[in-house]
Simulated assay, not measured.
Amino acid sequence: MADMASARAYEEEVNGGERFKFGENWTQFLNVIDEYRIEQAVDSLKKMLELETMEGMSFLDIGSGSGLFSLAARRLGAKVLSFDYDPKSVACTAELKRRYFENDKAWQIGNGSVLDRDYLNTLGMFDIVYSWGVLHHTGAMWTALDNVAYNVALNGKLFIALYNDQGRASKIWWLVKKTYVALPKYLRWLVLVPGYVSLWGPVTIRDFVFFRPFRTWLTYKNNRGMSPHRDVVDWIGGFPFEVSKPEQIFDFYKNRSFKLTKLKTCAGKHGCNQFVFQRNN
């Protein structure tokens, strides 16, 4: 029932011009996934969570997207539960499981919303709760941030990444993203082309100035595994869109008995600040 209700709600939001289809981007990503990207994902989990193995641990991937980091956690030995609000993202995660852990009972996949507390309650508590670049796309970020806290076991870790608040620039990006998802598909290039110029124009000019045309584009490695084009589409279209300052997130979880153990900021630029919290009681 939760799967069907989530799928219906998702389609209503997409059709109403209120939500970007992230799953379509992740479907394209499956065509380029390789051992290098998988190992990068494994290494990033190990570094941020400060561990070498997840043997005997449970891992909840909220907004699993492509399923890459669920796969990474499973490779590290965790028992994994992945879910996403976007049906195509759920399908991507299922396809990745089929390729690497087919018929594995230690990796379960579902369709649900992080805003649905009843659904989250059915999942239980986990040693690691992971949600990278997801909660700010729910349309109710602070509710989502509160909800995920209840799935973290005592002494467990919460690893989240959230868009940085750039003030006026973030307000402009909100308008860009909202315009993109509200437009018919055949008109979205009107937003995408200026977005390309804004995001890639300066670095492309620099590459030409230093006699290395398109070098940055050709050697680009997004930390989520996306190609340059898919990364641009993901950023331009990523709506709903909310932002936060690192100190807001720190205070929010401090008041909920969580201790910050790791922080990696985007140095005030557009992008995500990454946090790892540990639940104390």
Rank of each mutant, 00 (worst) to 15 (best):
E95L: 06
N155I: 01
V80W: 14
V134N: 02
Y186G: 05
D231V: 03
Y119V: 09
D118V: 07
T143K: 07
G139W: 03
W217F: 02
H137Q: 10
M141H: 03
S257D: 14
P240A: 02
A169E: 04
A144H: 12
G67S: 05
D146E: 14
S66T: 10
N121Y: 09
L187P: 12
K269P: 08
A5P: 00
H136V: 12
K264M: 07
R206I: 09
K254G: 10
E35L: 08
W189Y: 07
E11M: 15
D104I: 08
E18K: 14
K47G: 05
R74P: 02
Q40F: 12
E95T: 10
Q166N: 06
W173E: 06
L30I: 11
F69I: 12
Q28L: 14
Y100N: 00
L49G: 06
Y180Q: 14
F277Q: 15
V209T: 02
L76E: 05
D61R: 13
V203A: 06
V14E: 00
T204F: 12
E247I: 10
A2G: 05
Q40R: 13
L123Q: 15
I128V: 13
G167T: 02
V90G: 01
W174S: 15
L162S: 00
K259C: 04
K88P: 01
F69S: 03
A144T: 11
C92R: 08
I160N: 08
R279P: 01
P228S: 07
F59Y: 13
A72F: 00
S70K: 05
K269D: 11
F22H: 15
K97N: 13
I62P: 14
A2L: 11
T179L: 14
Y163V: 07
G237Q: 11
G23C: 11
A182C: 02
C266P: 00
L187R: 13
D3Y: 01
K264Y: 01
F211S: 12
F159L: 15
G133C: 03
A161W: 02
S198Q: 03
K259D: 04
K79R: 14
L60Q: 03
K259N: 07
S170D: 05
N15W: 04
E12C: 05
D207T: 11
R212E: 08
I109V: 15
T122E: 03
L183C: 00
G112V: 11
